[in-house]
Computed example of a mutant assay.
Amino acid sequence: MTTTPEPRPTQTPYDVPAIMAGLYGDGIIGLKGAFPREWVARLGEELPVLYREALARPGGAVGRGTNRHYVEIHPEDISGFLDLVTHPWVRTVCESVLGPNYKIVEIGFDVPNPGAKDQPWHRDFRAGPETLIDRRLNSLAFNLTTVDVEEDMGPFEIAPGTQWDDPSEYDHGMFPPVSLFPRYQALAQRKLPKMGDISVRSALTIHRGTANTSQKPRPVLVLGVDAPGAGHDEFHDLHFTRGYYERLPQEVKDHLICRVVDELEPIVQGHTIEGLMMGDA
């Protein structure tokens, strides 16, 4: 009698225990030099065009504080989407933390412009019972800067380990009271990535953008990925033209929650964070 051999786990050059430890511990990890600088430079030329277009249409960009915007985009608006979602590190992180059936639900970018102020410490959304009770992460946010970040450009700050903090005193489950700010300030790590670096974090880890006192914007690409059933696709509208979608490898299609359309429609941003729109820290 012949038996079917058990499927062998996919080999990866990346340290899966370290990935798990980093995201379940600090709540953020990164990979330096993941992409060539030339690849990032091309992205850096594409995002300003998309930014101007978004600012010119109603609902195209959402405020995230003074002189800050978030813009959700169509994957095919940028030339590097396929490179990004098939990068071995990105795939390994997603499979390790979210499981083999992870789903890509969002792509967009943040722009802290000159004059942006310190944001209040916050989470990007409420923690659910999966995290609060089961102690499981079911969503990740990848960030990729298009510039070499300098100290005066409003670097991202994060308070490691706070993805597990009790939100019972948080406003809307997302904004800690000012009385907790000294704790986050004491924990804070300021990130200064270079072009080509990529990071991934739990969006529940307490974080903020800091004041941009330079004369340069700091655009950063954002890729949102869920475990099955996490539900954040309800806040987004990922869609592809039929021709583009049909050219995608099946291994990418398997990880998409999206619409396939004949013609792209303007995106009206659905994931607003009211506490960031109302002001700065």
Rank of each mutant, 00 (worst) to 15 (best):
H255D: 04
N138I: 11
L238K: 03
D166I: 09
I158S: 07
Q215R: 12
G154Q: 00
H207L: 02
G196R: 07
D237T: 12
R218V: 02
Y244P: 06
I198C: 04
V261L: 12
F175L: 15
V261T: 10
Q189L: 14
S199I: 06
S179I: 13
S179T: 15
H236A: 10
F156L: 11
F240Q: 05
L180D: 11
V220T: 13
M153R: 00
E169S: 15
L238G: 02
R218D: 00
N212W: 01
V222I: 15
D148C: 03
E251A: 11
C258L: 06
V252T: 08
T241M: 08
P182L: 10
A186Y: 09
T162F: 03
G154K: 00
M195D: 01
V261G: 10
H255S: 02
Q250L: 13
S214L: 00
P176W: 02
A186W: 11
H239I: 07
G196L: 08
L192Y: 11
T210M: 02
D197R: 05
P249D: 05
H172V: 14
D148G: 02
D237G: 13
R190K: 14
T241Q: 05
F156Q: 06
A203S: 15
L180V: 11
G173Q: 07
F181H: 09
P228T: 02
S179Y: 13
P219L: 04
D233S: 12
V260Q: 03
G196H: 07
L248M: 09
L248W: 05
G173F: 03
R208E: 10
P228I: 04
E263C: 13
R183Q: 14
G196F: 07
F175P: 00
L180R: 11
R208I: 08
L223V: 08
S139R: 07
L144T: 08
P176R: 05
E157Y: 06
F235P: 03
Y245L: 10
R242S: 13
R247A: 12
R218K: 06
I257F: 12
I198H: 01
A203R: 08
Q189N: 15
D226K: 05
K191D: 14
D262E: 09
P167T: 09
Y244K: 10
F181L: 11
R136C: 14
Y244H: 13
G231F: 02
F156W: 10
P167C: 08
F181P: 06
D171M: 12
N212D: 07
